[in-house]
């Protein structure tokens, strides 16, 4: 088994035992992202959770860069870090989330959730590793530049793009309607 694995890996000329620099950086940043994500879902201080989320999402932007998807990386920084996290913070504030430790941040469902998550993670990782353990991707050519993305987006994806703008409009209107205080309530 290991012989076959080594043979298949060596035939490609790439081995997990001889990582490239990009891979090392990717793994390190990935570990940071993962740690931040775990802290996000486990910390008992709600605002800290949002801040750890910022770390995780920012780490992901770095990963995108490492994967040569620079435009996606910037969009990630702009939208997620710029707007979504701000929105979340506003949400926490508006729902009068306590600042500081709140011992009941996790519901009683935690152990079930942990079980489901661990089993799911085991399954997924097993499957993914089994499927892609010898797949190699070439990062040389920069296919994720802004130009390339814009060309593709406005050549082939125009219709979904416009539909998406309608969706955004609908979400905007919906958010306004939902969060608007009714007159009789006020």
């Amino acid at each position: 088994m290991t012989a076959v694995l080594a043979a298949s890996l060596s035939s490609q000329g790439h081995s997990f035992l001889t990582p490239t620099g990009v891979e090392i950086v990717f793994v390190l940043v990935g570990l940071a992202v993962l740690g931040a994500a775990v802290l996000t879902v486990t910390t008992s201080q709600l605002v800290h959770a949002a801040l750890w989320l910022v770390v995780a999402l920012g780490g992901l932007a770095i990963e995108y860069l490492l994967l040569t998807a620079e435009f996606i990386a910037w969009v990630q920084v702009l939208i997620y870090l710029g707007s979504v996290v701000v929105l979340v913070l506003f949400g926490l504030m508006l729902t009068k989330a306590p600042i500081g430790r709140s011992p009941d941040a996790d519901s009683g469902n935690r152990w079930v959730a942990l079980g489901v998550a661990v089993v799911a993670a085991a399954t997924l990782v097993t499957l993914v590793v089994d499927a892609f353990r010898s797949t190699w991707m070439d990062l040389s050519s920069g296919g994720g530049s802004t130009g390339a993305n814009g060309e593709v987006l406005f050549r082939y994806w125009v219709l979904p793009f416009e539909a998406l703008s309608v969706l955004l409009l609908a979400a905007l209107v919906g958010a306004i309607v939902l969060s608007r205080r009714h007159r009789e309530e006020g």
């Binding site: 469902n109 079930v112 959730a113 489901v116 089993v119 399954t123 499957l127």
Partner: peptide, 16 residues
């Protein structure tokens, strides 16, 4: 959350 847990647990079992 309980409902969702059950749902996802089922999905995981199916996937396994």
């Amino acid at each position: 959350q309980t409902y969702l847990s059950a749902l996802l647990a089922g999905a995981v079992v199916l996937a396994v």
